[in-house]
């Protein structure tokens, strides 16, 4: 009990004390423990090594491990903050924290900017947005002519790229999403409010004395 993780939990590289994680995030200790139940299930779905690899992440997302998806890859890379090719429990909780309904709006804006800045240059460039649109069309089997794609890009950059330099910087992005709040909808997961109800088994595996914290 208390703050010393059991041998079972030490099998999880990157396992962190739920009390510490709760103090750094919008989650309560119980919610962090419920997230551990979800983490255990995802991280053992292909290789039971206590870490989530890309295949396991895609399997959890699509229920199909063969589906390659630009956006799922991008989300995985942003969760994998230490760039180890795997997500440990600490990474998982801290990244999901951004999606909590109570997380600061600024964190959501930052995360979404990084998500769309595919090559990490600090700008969302037109060629990146085009690449994402083409990936979406491929995924959804939606048919749009190249001319329509260019029209969509023209319209988007006319609205978002205020200084018209052909790329969207962080400030332009923050202003653009404040005028189009629906763009941040994907950055909030209402599920995170009910995580202890979704994974009630955390109660039986809790290692914290007072789980009501």
């Amino acid at each position: 009990m208390g703050c010393f993780p059991s041998r079972a939990r030490r099998q999880y590289p990157g396992y962190e004390d739920p009390v510490v994680l709760a103090s750094q995030t919008a989650f309560s200790v119980s919610e962090v423990e419920a997230l551990f139940e979800l983490f255990k299930s995802i991280s053992s779905s292909v290789v039971d090594d206590g870490l989530i690899n890309k295949e396991e992440f895609q399997l959890a997302l699509f229920k199909n491990r063969k589906k390659e998806n630009l956006f799922a890859n991008r989300i995985f890379d942003l969760f994998d903050v230490k760039q180890k090719g795997v997500i440990d429990f600490g990474d998982f909780v801290r990244a999901l924290n951004v999606f909590h309904p109570n997380a600061p709006q600024e964190d959501k804006v930052d995360f979404s900017f990084k998500l769309y800045d595919l090559d990490g240059t600090g700008f969302i460039e037109r060629k990146e947005v085009k690449q994402m649109l083409i990936a979406l069309l491929y995924e959804s089997e939606m048919r749009l002519s190249d001319e329509t794609v260019e029209l969509i890009l023209d319209k988007t950059f006319l609205e978002a790229d205020v200084n018209q330099d052909g790329k969207i910087d962080k400030t332009e992005w923050a202003n653009f999403v404040s005028r189009n709040p629906s763009l941040l909808k994907i950055m909030t997961l209402p599920y995170l409010r009910d995580i202890t109800t979704t994974f009630p088994s955390f109660v039986f595996n809790s290692e914290v004395d007072d789980i009501a914290t």
Binding site: L61, L70, M132, E139, L151, I152, K185, I186, Y191, T198
Partner: peptide
């Protein structure tokens, strides 16, 4: 709205790969 009237990010945000809600579906 018709796709041509939507901005690119509205379209992109409909990707299944960006819908993390499915992680919580058992």
């Amino acid at each position: 709205a018709a796709p041509a009237l939507m901005n690119a990010f509205e379209l992109i945000s409909t990707s299944q790969g960006l819908n993390l809600g499915t992680l919580f579906e058992k």
